[in-house]
Amino acid sequence: MAVVSVSMPDELLARIDQFAEEHGYTGRSEVIREASRNLLGEFEDARLEDRDLMGIVTVTFDYETTSVEERMIHLRHEHEELVASNFHSHVGDHYCMELFVLEGSLEDISTFVGKIRATRDALTVDYSVTPVDSFDPIGTSE
Rank of each mutant, 00 (worst) to 15 (best):
residue 3 V to A: 07
residue 4 V to Q: 12
residue 4 V to K: 13
residue 5 S to E: 02
residue 5 S to T: 15
residue 5 S to L: 03
residue 5 S to R: 00
residue 6 V to A: 12
residue 6 V to N: 07
residue 7 S to L: 12
residue 8 M to Q: 08
residue 8 M to V: 11
residue 10 D to P: 02
residue 11 E to C: 03
residue 13 L to S: 03
residue 13 L to I: 04
residue 13 L to D: 12
residue 14 A to D: 15
residue 14 A to W: 02
residue 14 A to V: 06
residue 15 R to M: 09
residue 19 F to W: 12
residue 20 A to F: 00
residue 22 E to L: 07
residue 23 H to C: 11
residue 24 G to Q: 14
residue 24 G to L: 05
residue 25 Y to H: 09
residue 25 Y to G: 05
residue 26 T to L: 03
residue 28 R to Q: 10
residue 29 S to N: 10
residue 33 R to K: 14
residue 33 R to D: 08
residue 34 E to M: 01
residue 34 E to C: 01
residue 35 A to Q: 02
residue 35 A to F: 00
residue 36 S to D: 06
residue 36 S to I: 10
residue 37 R to Y: 01
residue 38 N to M: 09
residue 38 N to H: 09
residue 39 L to T: 02
residue 40 L to I: 08
residue 41 G to R: 02
residue 42 E to P: 00
residue 46 A to P: 09
residue 47 R to Y: 08
residue 47 R to Q: 10
residue 48 L to M: 09
residue 49 E to L: 05
residue 50 D to C: 00
residue 51 R to S: 11
residue 52 D to F: 03
residue 53 L to Q: 05
residue 53 L to Y: 10
residue 55 G to H: 08
residue 56 I to P: 11
residue 57 V to F: 00
residue 57 V to T: 01
residue 59 V to M: 14
residue 60 T to P: 05
residue 60 T to E: 11
residue 60 T to L: 01
residue 65 T to C: 08
residue 65 T to L: 01
residue 66 T to S: 15
residue 68 V to P: 04
residue 69 E to G: 14
residue 70 E to H: 11
residue 73 I to L: 07
residue 76 R to P: 03
residue 78 E to P: 00
residue 80 E to Q: 08
residue 81 E to K: 10
residue 85 S to I: 01
residue 87 F to R: 14
residue 88 H to F: 05
residue 90 H to V: 01
residue 93 D to N: 06
residue 94 H to I: 07
residue 95 Y to P: 00
residue 96 C to D: 05
residue 97 M to C: 05
residue 99 L to P: 03
residue 99 L to N: 11
residue 100 F to D: 10
residue 101 V to L: 14
residue 103 E to N: 14
residue 106 L to K: 11
residue 106 L to V: 09
residue 108 D to Q: 15
residue 112 F to V: 06
residue 113 V to C: 12
residue 113 V to L: 07
residue 113 V to A: 10
residue 115 K to E: 15
residue 115 K to H: 12
residue 116 I to E: 02
residue 119 T to A: 11
residue 119 T to G: 12
residue 120 R to C: 00
residue 122 A to H: 07
residue 123 L to A: 10
residue 127 Y to F: 13
residue 128 S to E: 14
residue 129 V to W: 06
residue 130 T to K: 02
residue 131 P to W: 01
residue 133 D to C: 02
residue 134 S to P: 00
residue 135 F to W: 09
residue 136 D to S: 09
residue 139 G to S: 04
residue 140 T to V: 14
residue 140 T to I: 13
residue 140 T to Q: 13
residue 140 T to G: 01
residue 141 S to N: 05
residue 141 S to C: 05
